[in-house]
Design a protein around this nucleic acid. Structure first.
Lengths: 155, 155
DNA sequence: GCGAATTATTTCAAGCATAAACCTTTAAGC
DNA sequence: GCTTAAAGGTTTATGCTTGAAATAATTCGC
């Protein structure tokens, strides 16, 4: 009989989690690459632009730059550049916030809202195909597990 | 009784998959941000550098640039810059490929291999903590599901 | 052999991303 | 009021990333 030696196999669990992490990375990057490619060829756009438009579309009243960067979990200066280009393209606009000359509020133009509606519809189709290997029940179950990871981190 | 009308709820499944995709993105970015921060403060390094070093460490005989970009699923030109900096820092080196003056083979220096060993060990600890909410069995089960997504895409 | 495709890689322009430094405006203390 | 701190954003330096174009070496077809 082999005697049980806890020192010989230090952390089998950590290896499983590491493999999961590598797989998560692989899947996410792969799907992201496909979506990026689709956005580029179909709409001559990018994922970061889509993300910003998506956030703005959920807030018709507009968002402050800091709210935007907070929602998207990206740095402040990052949003500056993306919004800058969206404004140049007539997708978004900035308006002054009454009573606070530091801030400005960003929102979609009519054109931007229409454009996002078209893109979001296609986007959902793409995702549905890319994740088609999973049934809705599996997807929902996985969401719950992933939520536990996020919640643990947030502490 | 409400009559079952398949036209009223066009694609409930696609919504579930879309939510899963958004959650995957959120978890991955969140963990990535933590790892990036840890690499930065602990080792004054970055994730792309770690990824390249990781690939090189699994191939002591060295990798051609195209093999490297293929493994990491990133563009060709991307790898050029990262390897360039690794070479400058004495982490990696390039050697000529006999019989093919176009290609070069990249591999870790002794210093690079030692440095990676240290980083990889810490990296595994970090991941183990970040994904600690999941048991090893859950992790393994999730890997199988994620694999199905990749396999479907590869077609 | 010789020209044409293919392969391996770099260079380039543009955009994305971060952290840190900075500037301006607003709010709070006193 | 005046000072100081905090909040909202931009700018800057650096690095990552892509896709496309350019360069160079190799291989293929004949």
């Amino acid at each position: 009989m082999t005697s049980p030696d806890p020192e010989m196999t230090p952390e089998p669990d950590s290896k499983a989690r590491l493999r999961l992490w590598l797989k998560l990375l692989k899947v996410t990057r792969s799907v992201e690459a496909d979506l990026r490619e689709a956005l580029r060829t179909e709409f001559a756009s990018t994922l970061p632009r889509f993300d910003v438009m998506s956030a703005l579309s959920r807030h018709a009243e507009g968002l402050k730059m800091s709210e935007l960067s907070g929602l998207l979990k990206v740095s402040n200066g990052n949003v500056t550049g993306i919004v800058e280009r969206l404004v140049e393209d007539g997708i978004a606009l900035r308006e002054a916030v009454p009573g606070d000359r530091r801030a400005s509020r960003v929102r979609l133009t009519r054109k931007g809202a229409e454009e996002f509606a078209r893109q979001a519809s296609e986007h959902e189709h793409w995702v549905n195909e890319l994740l088609g290997a999973l049934e809705a029940e599996e997807a929902t179950a996985m969401i719950l597990q992933l939520d536990r990871i996020i919640r643990e981190e947030a502490q």
